[in-house]
Design a protein around this nucleic acid. Sequence first.
DNA 1: CATGAATGAGATTTCATTCAT
DNA 2: TATGAATGAAATCTCATTCAT
Lengths: 212, 212, 212, 212
Amino acid sequence: MIDAADTTPPVTPDEDSSKRRQILEGARKVFMDLGFDGASMGEIARVAGVSKGTLYVYFTDKFRLFEAIVEEEAVHRGGSNFSFDPARDAETVLSEFGHAWIAVVCRPGGGSAIRTVMAIAERMPEVGRRYYDCVIEGTIGRLAAYLQARVDAKELAIDDCHLAASQFQLMCQATLFLPFIFQGAPAPSPGAVDKVVASAVRMFLAAYALRT
Amino acid sequence: MIDAADTTPPVTPDEDSSKRRQILEGARKVFMDLGFDGASMGEIARVAGVSKGTLYVYFTDKFRLFEAIVEEEAVHRGGSNFSFDPARDAETVLSEFGHAWIAVVCRPGGGSAIRTVMAIAERMPEVGRRYYDCVIEGTIGRLAAYLQARVDAKELAIDDCHLAASQFQLMCQATLFLPFIFQGAPAPSPGAVDKVVASAVRMFLAAYALRT
Amino acid sequence: MIDAADTTPPVTPDEDSSKRRQILEGARKVFMDLGFDGASMGEIARVAGVSKGTLYVYFTDKFRLFEAIVEEEAVHRGGSNFSFDPARDAETVLSEFGHAWIAVVCRPGGGSAIRTVMAIAERMPEVGRRYYDCVIEGTIGRLAAYLQARVDAKELAIDDCHLAASQFQLMCQATLFLPFIFQGAPAPSPGAVDKVVASAVRMFLAAYALRT
Amino acid sequence: MIDAADTTPPVTPDEDSSKRRQILEGARKVFMDLGFDGASMGEIARVAGVSKGTLYVYFTDKFRLFEAIVEEEAVHRGGSNFSFDPARDAETVLSEFGHAWIAVVCRPGGGSAIRTVMAIAERMPEVGRRYYDCVIEGTIGRLAAYLQARVDAKELAIDDCHLAASQFQLMCQATLFLPFIFQGAPAPSPGAVDKVVASAVRMFLAAYALRT
DNA sequence: CATGAATGAGATTTCATTCAT
DNA sequence: TATGAATGAAATCTCATTCAT
């Protein structure tokens, strides 16, 4: 009422205010744990430590908030940070990528983004597509480009690099991803990942390495 | 009272009455399209062509109805019908299995069981586990047993048959399954499946065939 | 369909058929235990050992069935069977009546009719009135008539016999009825009833006995 | 953030906010008129002048709302406000108490708390016990203590003061309470109460006054 | 008459969203 | 901006009642 001088500094530019961050943080946890329908705005507010009303100051509705979370997951944690140096040899790069990819899809601590988005993709095609493009297709695309580079470097002989990339990506998940998702299994141990990725690399090279 | 000759009609034995079937049919559609939370009992009743009350005559509650659907999917359509004749050669068997597996996981007409169960597995661990055991692990197990037979028959050389089975299963999905789930893509064309499965078989044999 | 000769004997005159009895028996238990709203027609059918449909063959609706129960309670168990021989002396008759009355209002085995009717009286004034007239007012009226006889016989001196009858009736319940109703206490022991009734009789006579 | 001087309004302290009062008021009317089962949350909301949702902001569920009503009735209107000055003579005190007690149990305007709780006591033993302890037993206990004081003062000669208190309490209701409950009779006229209470006092003293 | 499958109205409860402060 | 009280639409589930057999 009194409003003693409206000297609030011109901060909080609405884009990355700390409240917004707080909300996104809380919402991510809740959405990823419970799914879109299972998450309630009340629970999100509680976890984020803000009031329910505040959620609507920053986001139009539940759907837009969810979109923002998925966007962030897609862009930020989507694995745009794999290193595909075309100069390095396939065995090393593939092995590194395999480990990194498992870390992305079997992120420990519950709350799988990939599952959450998968679950809702039929009802929210745009969201599904965006996540897929960034995280799945984006990764496969960059891996495919790397493979093409190694083909050009005469290390590999691959007919369809995009298919090969997808094959490798999936092989790395063998025996690891589905139990993690379906059984609530903990994130796989480093040893297990080592073994699976090594096997995938071996298999990949057995099929695609250019023998001299 | 007299009722000479017990010609009473089948009296809906409650186990496979047509109403029960009707409900399961409708519920399957709705659950698989919208997920557990997205599906409402009202919508299920509408699609099944019965009243809301009738749903509760046959199933205690929404959860039990969902369970029944998943059970049916797991047992009935779960691919227990793959033919793994240990006498047949790997190339043929793997190719056939690959096609059959894609037909299971990319079933056309929308409503993916695997996605629906995946989505809810964290909140309903029992349901997730049951589906996984029947459909995923069951299939891999039988495929692994077949592979072992071929190892014994000196056709293949495989260290870890279970891992190899999982690898093959996943490779068959390359470039097909995730777009189907995330993008709402239609079920893949026979040609596309042919190509992917053929590549998977080639790769598998390149890695595991015992060369003489 | 065949209806082989409609020789069904003219029994089951709808008035006291055994099915009707069965239903009334079951309904009484359920209504008295759970109250009008708490009782469900399904539960009544179960306890009575008939199908739900059969209930509606004998009674138009739930309300009419309840009415029939209350009617029976009122007429049949309503204590129309107290013996008020105007020739017998007050002390004996009052003491006997006191015991009998407690047996009526604290009927063991749960399921108090008086409570059940009390509970619904506001919403079903006719039912309440009928029960009151038969069981409460009827009893008091007959007791009052007896008292008047003893006044005429010069044993008692009572100004308002109806009031006196009500006073005695209530005093007999002292410390017994309300715990039975509110606390779920078991039916009072004979010793406790003896004591309370004796005290009531003593008090009644102290106030109303005509001392010579 | 700055909020110079914490002049925030009372902020509805959730304990005695006016909305809470409004709800309790409306719920009391509806529950007392229709009983626990007969009352619907929708009707309560309508009578209270709030939305159905608001009911659940203040009370977890229907049962808790009911409990709160009964608690209030027990503690607040339970007649803890009878004056039992041990110095005053029995005739006066008993007469005053008799009138006050009738006012409690035959409260005009419909909606008897005692009936409502009685009706549900078997299914909600805790609620029944609480109400009984506060309103019935509490009152009898205090009356018994007063009587004991008058015994000590040589005004009365009573063997069992608790029984005597219960007897008096019940006698005051003679011809008044049950018609009020069963017949939907209006609250008794002052004249009627005068007469009944006077008779109860006379009877009580005839039995228990210590004659010199 | 007797059944029990089927119904649909209505009950309780949840929750995304709004709004006055 | 931030709040949280309030809302009302919609969800799950119950149950009195009907009806074909």
